[in-house]
Design a protein around this nucleic acid. Structure first.
Lengths: 216, 216
DNA sequence: TTACGATAAATTGTCTGAGTAATAGGCGTG
DNA sequence: CACGCCTATTACTCAGACAATTTATCGTAA
């Protein structure tokens, strides 16, 4: 958190292992294992004699789920959130288009089932939100592209966290179901171009909602 | 490598820490630090009594540069490579479109300079390839989107490794410079739509080249 | 026979203290 | 001024012990 919040800036060196572990009241080995995880995510680099330095932000694995979570938790800049939604707007419609080309009928049935569950429970309940996630997950699965799945689920989780952290106060102003059904219909019958268009619409509207609740 | 190659399948448990570290002739702490890095990348999960189990592939951070490198090094499936290029085809044109909207004149000058260096040295030399990378990096920088930069540089590095690993034998059959200049012109003056189109063309042709060298 | 609660065993997690290896920075010499 | 040597600092590795956690087992009672 000190690193992602900028309290320790890239280029700065952390206190040496002994001092750091004492500050945190843990053993040196526990501290080292923690630092190794940060190193694995590209956030720090360790070298003998020099110590452990915070890496340039461009070297961080920003798409790592943990890193994303930490950034969001630490109060991300507005610019970062814009970037997050921008990326979603690039990836999700493309994923929908691929799904329209490749989905199996079993996957289609699965999507319908998820939407029906969403309809029953609404987004106010945890079950409803789970059904929403499931719908989007099946779309990703239908693309048959593991990398796209990995990327998109990271983004999806991050976006959900932003709404959990920031929203809270206002109700969802709009019924999201019709948009979801339009995406479904497009993937079922409309072809890739139509799937892309409807998903752009869905993401765009979700963005509007979130933007509203972020302005405060 | 045992994990990414599938020699140890998701769900399987690794030998316990003492046996594993002895097999590798390292101390338990060194082994634990290594495993912690894999855990940070989502590839394994450790729990007392149960041991360390390989996570489901859907939980891996496939976009982590290390994970990508390991997968490519271990001989990726053709399907995986298709997915990689597919993702590139989604991301890079979108990045070019954003760059066309937001680039500063300084960045534009930087791009021109990189292309001229590329022209001087050609892609046969390391300097020429560095200039190529620089050109693409400046485009990313011009998008002003950190997440997009992180994603695209991971993909870019991965693609370079595939060509390094597989290509080797044949010369580049085509002069890539005209395509690069078209992208440059579009970013300089043509607007986002034209930038997207020219970048699609560039990536598509690069894909063709690589596909050719992969079929053997 | 089944359900449940106490017990045991296996494994990771943590801690400590020591020694090793690498390297940046200073020092001296040519 | 350039180069090579030296030293101190730091991360890196190791070994051994103990703690915490959780699964599996076993016995007891319903």
């Amino acid at each position: 958190m000190a690193i992602v919040s900028g309290r320790i800036q890239p280029g700065e060196v952390l206190a040496n292992e002994i001092d750091s572990s004492e500050q945190l009241s843990v053993s040196r080995s526990a501290y080292r294992e923690a630092v190794k995880m940060l190193a694995a995510k590209g956030m720090v680099e360790s070298r003998p004699k020099t110590g452990t330095t915070v890496s340039a932000r461009s070297r961080w694995n920003l798409l790592d789920p943990d890193v994303l979570a930490w950034i969001i938790e630490s109060g991300p800049t507005e610019e970062f959130l814009r970037g997050l939604f921008e990326l979603r707007m690039i990836v999700e419609p493309a994923a929908a288009a691929l799904a329209a080309e490749r989905r199996t009928s079993a996957q289609l049935a699965h999507m319908r089932q998820a939407l029906q569950a969403m309809e029953r429970h609404t987004l106010k309940t945890e079950e409803g939100r789970a059904a929403d996630r499931e719908f989007h997950d099946v779309i990703l699965e239908a693309t048959g592209n593991d990398l796209l799945i990995s990327l998109s689920s990271s983004i999806g989780a991050a976006i959900r966290w932003t709404t959990i952290f920031k929203q809270r106060k206002r109700e969802l102003p709009r019924d999201p179901l019709p948009d979801h059904w339009r995406v479904f219909d497009a993937i079922a019958a409309g072809g890739p171009a139509e799937a892309r268009r409807t998903m752009e619409e869905l993401v765009g509207l979700a963005l509007e909602d979130t933007r509203g609740s972020l302005d405060n």
